[in-house]
Amino acid sequence: MVEQLIDTDKLKKIAEEVISREDVRLLIGYRKGTFGFRMRPAFVEEVSEVGELEFTPACVNNLATYLTNYERPPLPRGTTNDTRKVAVMVKGCDSRALLQQMVELAYKRDDVIILGIPCNGVIDPAKVDKRFPEAKGPGDVKREGDNFTFSADGKTETVPAAEVIADKCTRCRYPTPLVYDELLAPEVERFADDTYEDIAGLEKRGSDEKWAYWEEKFSRCVRCYGCRNVCPMCYCDECVLDRLSPQWMRRSVDISENTAYHISRAYHLAGRCIQCGECQRVCPMDIPIMEMNRKFYKDVAEFYEYEPGTDAEEKPLLSIFSVDDKEDFIL
């Protein structure tokens, strides 16, 4: 029997303790959204703001993104950046982003306070919007056994979890955070795994068929760069896409540049993607971005027995090698 895991009162109490600390400047968590069953990121700087914090299965965002996407405008003379710690709420998948960021030395373990949330699956907002197109909300989502219970506008409805759960959760390998300072609930044991059936199925098709599949998807892309910006692993000071000299891919939107964009985005995440699925969630054009990321994930696991974001002591995949690495295609 899987139940709602997080006790909101306990969460608020811990959050209050954390944000009261002298050496903490910010706590990033979740709060109610503005419509339907949405939840949104909360940025708590004062004890008085702790009351809005909450965790429900609608908390889909990977907050690890916010540890690396802060902007550094020039400071007024005589001022310095606030370098105190940031506390962040993370689910199992999100915690792996923190580990991978630390592997890449984006920051040190001591710079963050991690509030871990063992998670038994979040909803897919697109599926929920489709299921409840008329829910004004903001509503509540609860997990009860094999169901999610949705309540909004005075109505409550129970939906089997399988219908609205996010796809990534049906393949989740790490429901309990792999790194944390405080765990907000008892650990959740692994309940799923990725079999890569769909990836293997696509691999087996002929080149023409594969390209026809991707051409249709890529031609839809409007290059809003939502998938790049939401990604916790995309945090270069200057992205290769924004550079004008050399201009790797042009701003113009056509099948050639769109494909180049998707190749570079996916390749830059080879051995780094931690499978949080945010890129695909945010894509307004419904491009199966995770099918590319999972292809790399699968290859990396098969060829190099490497799983990104699972060990802070590991080195980045492409900065190490073994003399025995696979080379069957090299003449």
Binding site: I263, L317, F321
Partner: peptide
Amino acid sequence: RRRFTLMRDFLEYLG
């Protein structure tokens, strides 16, 4: 070798 093994497999995957 590592980089191109992954790149080649990925390009093949895209068709």
